[in-house]
Write a protein that binds this DNA or RNA. Structure first.
Lengths: 233, 233
DNA sequence: GGCAGAAGTTGAACGCGTTCAAGATGGCCG
DNA sequence: CGGCCATCTTGAACGCGTTCAACTTCTGCC
């Protein structure tokens, strides 16, 4: 009874006609605007539908759930982030400057959605949710983000332990996730604390990465690399 | 209109009579059992009330929301964890052994609730939620947990950089939070990966803590300490 | 043009967490 | 004993996310 390879029309899939695409976009824009204005929890599906001038069920034709509307936010943010990071990556060659630029760019992009992102985060945090940053469904944006950090490293003049180097992009992505986590919880005005976290953590990461080749630290470096390998299967 | 210092009777507060206490316990036991049996999402408040033989509203008299029932789970787990860690703390004096023992004890205690803990985690993750591990309402169990890691350090023979030492318990607690985070997402049978994470990370932490006094690492150590101080205000 | 079927659309209905006005209980004091 | 009041209990009702059978619109084909 379960549709295993069903050629289902939509609900997560893309619309097949121009009309569908238009409706989908309309609902999406309306939802995003309302999320930003009133927050996620206080924006009801009924309100979104009414504002967009469609029936409630129609929204569910294009988006499997209210949470799936957030998925779209996730994708957009990722694209915006990559774009915002571009100038820095084209200009700088110093590892710390590149990393700092990319992290600050992320917060720049996220800034207008801080309040809304909090509720969004709750949803993403559930491991069983398809929106989890570690889930299969979010693989595309996640890999794009990891690629961004691979570029941070590749375009830099940093000298890195050769064993650590291939693992570093994912570690940097993890640090990025940590930064976002901190940002979500950051209640300071303008999320100034997060800026301080970045400014403090980047030189530290920079130094540790540089030290990773040191004789005394090689065992520790190797330990880190082995641990990552073990956990990845 | 808002009750700012209201001497409200309950809904988060303690019952005032023996009868109340009894009802509260009954609801709590029923809820915990059902959460473990069916999971959080599929256990409805109506079902809890019916099983406990009370009205729905009665449950809300003692617990502000379905989420508040989880708060209780949080408290119990913390108590169990402290108890489970006791033997190790009384026996071992080696830092790595103590840390490993305390972390494994935590997973031991959490193990039976893995599925349920996932949904619980979703709730705890929301920054605005009173159940967030960083919120004021959870200060008591959090401080108890930090105290546990202070004891891990205090009772050990580890030599630590004197500047780092006072910050270390909270850092260890953070590592513990990270471990729990990993555990929540861990889908491997019996959460074996989390065990590997602990077994891999503990020697690493042990080594880094030991190295923190080294000449070459002092600047990095100081950087870490400064960063923590900055972020704490 | 007509028609089959895919694509898109509708809104009433379901079960959920939560609220609250109303009622029941029980201990304390005159 | 009688009445008062804090405490406790009730369950109908509300708004929410979500579902789905029925309906309409559009496209390709003869």
């Amino acid at each position: 009874m379960t549709d295993q390879s069903a050629p289902t029309t939509a609900a997560g899939g893309e619309p097949a006609t121009a009309r569908g695409e238009q409706t989908r976009q309309l609902i999406l824009e309306t939802a995003m605007r309302m999320f930003r204005e009133r927050g996620y929890a206080r924006t009801t599906m009924r309100a979104i539908a009414q504002e967009a001038g469609v029936a409630v069920g129609n929204a569910y034709y294009y988006f499997g759930s209210k949470e799936h509307l957030i998925q779209e936010f996730y994708l957009r943010t990722q694209r915006e982030h990559a774009a915002a990071a571009r100038p820095v990556l084209d200009r700088e060659s110093d590892f710390a400057a590149r990393l700092s630029g990319v992290l600050h760019a992320a917060i720049d992009v996220l800034a207008p959605s801080h309040e809304f992102a909090a509720s969004f985060f709750k949803v993403a945090a559930e491991p069983t949710s398809p929106l989890s940053p570690f889930s299969a469904e979010t693989a595309a944006p996640r890999e794009a983000a990891v690629a961004l950090f691979a570029e941070v490293l590749a375009g830099s003049t940093a000298k890195v332990d050769p064993e650590l180097r291939p693992q570093l992009p994912e570690l940097l992505w993890l640090a990025y996730m940590g930064t976002v986590l901190y940002w979500v919880y950051d209640r300071s005005p303008g999320q100034a604390r997060t800026r301080k976290l970045i400014d403090g953590a980047v030189p530290l990461i920079d130094r540790l990465v540089g030290l990773s080749r040191l004789r005394v630290l090689r065992p520790a470096t190797r330990q880190v690399v082995d641990l990552i390998r073990t956990l990845r299967h």
